[in-house]
Amino acid sequence: MKFGFIGSYGSPAQQVRLAQECEAHGWDGFFTWDGVSLDDEGFGAQPTWDPFGLLAAVAAVTERITLGAMIFALPRRRPWELAQQVLTVDHLSGGRLVLPVGVGVPIDRAFTSVKGQPSTLRERARALDEVLAWLDRSWSGESFEHDGEWAGTGTFRFPVPPVRGRVPVWPVAVWDAAQPPRRSLDRALRWDGMVPQVRGDSPEDAEAGPEHIRELTAWIAEHRDSEAGAYEVIMQGRLDADPDRARDQARAAAGAGATWWIESWWDPTTTTPESLLDRARQGPPAL
Rank of each mutant, 00 (worst) to 15 (best):
L92W: 07
V58G: 13
T48F: 15
E81I: 05
V89M: 02
Q117A: 14
L74H: 02
G104N: 10
S37R: 04
T66C: 13
G44E: 11
T66K: 06
G95Q: 13
R96H: 05
R76I: 06
R64W: 01
A73D: 03
R64F: 03
P100R: 10
Q85E: 13
R109I: 01
T88K: 00
S93N: 06
G44S: 13
I107N: 08
L121Q: 09
R96W: 06
V86Q: 04
Q46K: 12
F72L: 15
G42N: 12
P75C: 09
S119D: 11
L82N: 03
G42Q: 14
F72E: 02
W49T: 05
A69I: 05
V98G: 07
F111G: 02
T66H: 04
R109Q: 15
D50W: 04
L74D: 01
P47W: 14
P47Q: 14
G44Y: 10
A60H: 04
E123M: 06
D108Q: 02
G68R: 00
W80T: 06
A45E: 14
L38T: 14
D39F: 12
R124C: 07
P106I: 03
I107A: 13
L38R: 05
L67G: 04
V61M: 07
W80E: 08
A45I: 00
Q117S: 12
E81Q: 08
F43H: 05
Q46T: 10
D50P: 02
M70K: 00
R76L: 04
V58F: 12
T66Q: 11
T112M: 08
Q85M: 12
D90V: 08
T48D: 09
T62A: 07
R77L: 10
A83V: 09
S119K: 15
V86E: 03
P100Q: 13
A56I: 01
V105Y: 10
T66P: 01
A60G: 11
A57N: 01
D40L: 15
G95V: 12
R124G: 07
V86W: 04
Q117I: 03
T120I: 08
